[in-house]
Write a protein that binds this DNA or RNA. Sequence first.
DNA 1: TCTGAGATTGAGACTGATTCTCAATATCAT
DNA 2: ATGATATTGAGAATCAGTCTCAATCTCAGA
Lengths: 178, 178
Amino acid sequence: MNGKDGGEREMTRAQAPAAFEKFLRGRGLKLTRPRWVILEAALDRRDHFSADELADRLRKNPRPVSKASVYRTLALLKESGLLEEHDFGGGRKFYEQALGRTHHDHLVCIGCGQITEFQNPRIEHMQDQVTEREGFVSVFHSLKIFGYCRACRKRGVSADPQTAHLPREIVGIHGSTT
Amino acid sequence: MNGKDGGEREMTRAQAPAAFEKFLRGRGLKLTRPRWVILEAALDRRDHFSADELADRLRKNPRPVSKASVYRTLALLKESGLLEEHDFGGGRKFYEQALGRTHHDHLVCIGCGQITEFQNPRIEHMQDQVTEREGFVSVFHSLKIFGYCRACRKRGVSADPQTAHLPREIVGIHGSTT
DNA sequence: TCTGAGATTGAGACTGATTCTCAATATCAT
DNA sequence: ATGATATTGAGAATCAGTCTCAATCTCAGA
């Protein structure tokens, strides 16, 4: 799962609440109970999750949190750098933890919805060449490769590229470095 | 604008209606007036356009076409391979002509919304390496680099990456090969 | 600990793109 | 021309996400 994990990840996880509080204070914002609940819920996730799925879950909590707060707080967590936002198409955004993680791109299986991460410094480097040539300053980028994963191929799952639709549910996630 | 243009492009444009009709027939679908109107309108565009913008325009035509038909027909044009669909974020999809064009990726300026196209065979090649290594079969991919274009930089337009929002209006398009 | 200015919350209305519904209409092989 | 089917259009529905605003918290200062 993306190289060495555990120790390093746990450390950043432990630091996250303090980092978020600092971020909030720096903006004159308050650390409220709903924000805390949402932060904790987000930190508990190791996968890619959507705002409304999280909102649904938290709405049923012993300490319910409203949909509006979930959306608002996820936006703050993104701005603070604790979460990263991804758009895999399909009309909804997904979030994943960012702290202590390095940049990576995604393979998205249109058969089962599984997401596999990958890193490729050479691709990144060539992107820099492209932007430089254009006088463009890159702020962020997104590279997603859609297709069929090994498991789906084995199962014989494949469809017409034109009619294949993007998964609305992110089923799982595999990490892969290089 | 993306290499040699004109002659070749015009040829494919002339062939497009026949190609679409063939596609429709192959599916037992009919070539109706609204579909024809929408096809022509789409072929007249050289830029990236959204469905609802086109629908708005056609709704005011001497021969009005309904929003529903525009959405339905653009989907068919995409399936037929005449149009390509892009999601630049911002909650709406954009279309561009695909016939006679080669694959390319996009630089999206978050300052002015301008889209610049680029091609880089080496990046494509490395993507192949990545998918192969994962046992993944690529069906399509999307590489978008968001940032500030040369013009925006000159104008001093730049914003906090976290608060920068994606353009809802695609302002223009520049092609660039390599 | 109390207080008040100001930030935040939650319920639900709203938005905006896109899709769906379905009765009326158009298409085209025969 | 005819009829079996596909298609259309107007508006309702959907769906993620945002907004509104009165009631409610937070927290720095007294």
